[in-house]
Structure formats: structure tokens, C-alpha cells
């Protein structure tokens, strides 16, 4: 086998520059302490992998994967949010120069330039030097892109109240509805409250009514006069219906607490 001094390779690879090739692979041309992959190095690699797996499983056990309520296409109040690694793109499309009439810039031009130059990087940065200092333009562009992505992701995620979001969109266990649709107050609830507070009182545009600390009288007052962001006159009907409505909310809460 021909190896050692005098051999020419393509770059620093294992491909021989003189086409006599089909040379068995080994790294003896590299200076320093090489180590056999099998079994010495693989054993160490295995240990690093095991440590990684333990850390990963700790994450999995500490944070169970989230599941929101079943998809409800009629829920107009829901604010969509993509997975975190698409947030930078989502945020980019909020800028004026990247939305509306300029949407092409946001969805094609900027991502096209960024990902296009990423895939063509070896041809754009084709000098011989490999050290970052020998190719300031490529390294500078990459740092710029990296900082912009982190910044966009940060500004997008900053406004989101993740805990409230998770709280408002909790899944309702199937077959465990606490709402008694035969209750005399349900009709009034359906007409006046359901569109904002949800079919299971779970909330929507308005807050959830499960766990409310208001008394029956307060509920009747809020339904007529409103509170906070809730406008007045949401309820329209007779006093008797109003009372049934408040009863319905109280009793549903009691059922939910069980």
C-alpha cells in the first residue's frame, strides 16, 4: 500500500490527487495520536451518547409534551403561533417591507437569499483559507444572519404569555363534559355567553368561567353590566332567565370541582 510522504490529496480529504486511487482508508497521514474507531473510539462515543440520552430523558420527564384542545375551526379568537423554529420567519412577515404588497419580499426574496446563499456557501466563499479570519465576509454574513434570526425569534416570543396560553387552551377530556345541556339556564348561556366563554366554559375571547369566585348576584350583575373588557348588555332576556343563567354557571362550576 502506498501511503505517507509524497502522496497528494484533494484538499485535506482522503481522495488521492493522482488517480491511482482505491486506497484502503486509514488516517496514518495525519500527524498525532490516531485511534481505531472500532472498538476504542466507539466505546467513548457510546458513553457521550449515553450522557446525552440521560439529559434528554430528564427534559422529557420534566416537561410532558403539550396538547391543546381539539382543533375548532370556528374559534375565531385563537391566535396562531408556529413552532419556535419558524418564529423568525413569522416575525419577519410582520414588518411593513415584508407584508401586504411587499409579501413577496418576506416569503421569497429574503428567505431565498438567506437559504440560497447557505446552500451555495462553498461556491460563494471559495478561497483556500479555512480559518474564520481568512474569510471575513462569509463569517460576517453568517454572524449577521444568526443575530437577526435570534433577534426575530426573541421579539416574537417575548410578547407571548406562554403560561396563560397553555392555561386557556387546556384539552377537555372527551366524554367528561361538565356542562349539563338540559339545565334551564343553558339556553341563555348558549345565546349570550358561549361565543366568548366557550361551550365548556373554558374561555375563548373571554376568560374561563370555571373556577370563578363570583357569587350568583355578581354573575347576574356582570352579565348585564359587564366588567373589565367585557361590554355591558351581553345578556338579553327576562330576569328569570338571568337567574337560571347564573345558576347554570354556579352549578357547572360545582360539577367541575368534583
Amino acid at each position: 500500500m502506498h501511503k505517507g510522504k509524497g502522496m497528494k490529496f484533494v484538499g485535506d480529504s482522503r481522495i488521492s490527487a493522482n488517480k491511482t486511487s482505491k486506497i484502503p482508508k486509514d488516517y496514518s497521514e495525519y500527524p498525532g495520536r490516531t485511534e481505531a474507531f472500532w472498538p476504542n473510539f466507539l466505546l467513548k462515543e457510546w458513553l457521550a451518547g449515553a450522557v446525552f440520552l440521560v439529559g434528554f430523558l430528564c427534559l422529557v420527564l420534566a416537561h410532558p409534551s403539550p396538547l391543546e384542545g381539539m382543533a375548532d375551526p370556528t374559534d375565531a379568537a385563537y391566535i396562531p403561533l408556529p413552532d419556535w423554529y419558524f418564529l423568525f420567519l413569522y416575525e419577519l412577515l410582520k414588518y411593513q417591507f415584508a407584508s401586504g404588497n411587499w409579501i413577496i419580499i418576506g416569503i421569497l426574496v429574503i428567505p431565498g437569499i438567506a437559504f440560497g446563499s447557505l446552500i451555495l456557501a462553498p461556491f460563494l466563499d471559495n478561497g483556500p483559507g479555512r480559518r474564520p479570519r481568512q474569510r471575513p465576509v462569509a463569517v460576517g454574513m453568517m454572524l449577521l444572519a444568526l443575530v437577526s434570526c435570534i433577534w426575530l425569534t426573541y421579539t416574537s416570543a417575548e410578547h407571548v404569555d406562554w403560561e396563560t396560553r397553555a392555561e386557556q387552551n387546556k384539552p377537555i377530556p372527551p366524554g367528561e363534559s361538565v356542562v349539563d345541556q338540559g339545565h334551564p339556564g343553558y339556553a341563555a348561556y348558549e345565546n349570550s355567553c358561549l361565543s366568548c366563554h366557550g361551550g365548556e366554559l373554558e374561555g375563548g375571547a373571554g376568560p374561563t368561567l370555571i373556577g370563578t369566585e363570583h357569587t350568583k348576584e355578581e354573575i347576574m350583575d356582570i352579565a348585564v353590566n359587564g366588567t373589565g373588557a367585557m361590554p355591558a348588555d351581553q345578556f338579553q332576556g327576562s330576569d328569570e332567565e338571568l337567574e337560571q343563567l347564573a345558576d347554570f354557571i354556579i352549578e357547572t362550576n360545582e360539577a367541575a370541582a368534583e
Binding site: K25, Y30, G32, R33, T34, E35, W38, F41
Partner: peptide
């Protein structure tokens, strides 16, 4: 081809701890 090759020193974290950056692909 699969297993019988040598690992050069500069990618081996046992020799240079900073070589852990070479683990990212495998991980």
C-alpha cells in the same frame, strides 16, 4: 468501510476537549 478506520487526534475529545464540537453531527 463502516467501522475499520482510524479517528485522527484533532477530532478526539479524549485528547483535546474542545473537539466536542465534532460530536454535534453524530448527536
Amino acid at each position: 468501510d463502516i467501522a475499520d478506520h482510524e479517528v485522527p487526534e484533532h477530532v478526539n475529545p479524549a485528547h483535546h476537549f474542545s473537539a466536542f464540537v465534532y460530536c454535534f453531527g453524530g448527536l
